[in-house]
């Protein structure tokens, strides 16, 4: 190896740390922040309605299994971590590792989905539907809307894995990966709020 100054992957990573860098294109952040505002509205309405009938909400909450919620939260946290590691691998041109990590993140999402389906079917079997009471209305609609986001995210993640495996060009491909990663972190972030709101708050 020649001595002297070489631009290595680490230097590139270090450089992108020093300058301010927008992950993904700006439009993605229009969508992400807009989505977060919509969910914030849903959160606020939920807490408001809870205040109108805290006893009903507490009693209904008790029929939920917070263990499912805990496990799901950890699954999403882990999947987000995998995505961060994957992006690191992409920036170090470790294509196959990146693709593998994206797939792992997707599998976490799949696990989340399975538990969600399991949870819904348990509740429906116990005759607890969105029309049972206000708590259950919010439970199904809030987690359902989030679930739709998870499913979309998993589809995006699949494309990200395929793109990473092919090797990403510096320009457009990296931007798509960053955007997709940011979207997935948002999905994680929203569930971090949903978990205590629905399963834990007293």
């Amino acid at each position: 190896m020649m001595s002297g100054i070489e631009v290595t992957a680490d230097t590139r990573v270090a450089r992108s740390r020093a300058e301010r860098h927008l992950p993904g294109e700006e439009g993605v952040w229009v969508f992400i922040m807009g989505d977060m505002v919509v969910f914030a509205l849903f959160f606020a309405v939920f807490v408001w309605y809870r205040g109108l009938d805290p006893v009903l909400f507490s009693e209904s909450q008790a029929t939920l299994n917070a263990g499912y919620g805990l496990f799901n939260t950890c699954l999403l946290l882990t999947s987000s971590w995998f995505v961060v590691l994957a992006m690191n691998a992409v920036r170090r041109d470790l294509d196959r590792q990146a693709a593998l990590l994206f797939v792992l993140a997707l599998l976490c999402g799949l696990g989340f989905s399975l538990i969600k389906v399991l949870e819904y079917s348990e509740k429906i079997a116990a005759d607890l539907t969105p029309l049972s009471n206000d708590f259950y209305m919010f439970y199904y609609i809030l987690t359902g809307l989030h679930f739709v986001h998870v499913i979309i995210g998993m589809v995006v993640m699949l494309f990200m894995a395929l793109l990473a495996r092919r090797g990403v060009s510096r320009s457009g491909g990296l931007s798509f990966l960053e955007g997709g990663a940011s979207y997935w972190h948002m999905v994680d972030l929203l569930w971090i709020v949903l978990f205590p709101l629905i399963y834990l708050m007293k």
């Binding site: 740390r17 927008l22 972190h185």
Partner: peptide, 19 residues
């Protein structure tokens, strides 16, 4: 919860180094 949200935003979403 919101402390956790902030951690995810700043360190996972890389907002710490964002504009």
């Amino acid at each position: 919860a919101f402390f956790k949200v902030r951690l995810v935003g700043l360190h996972f979403m890389e907002l710490k180094t964002a504009p």
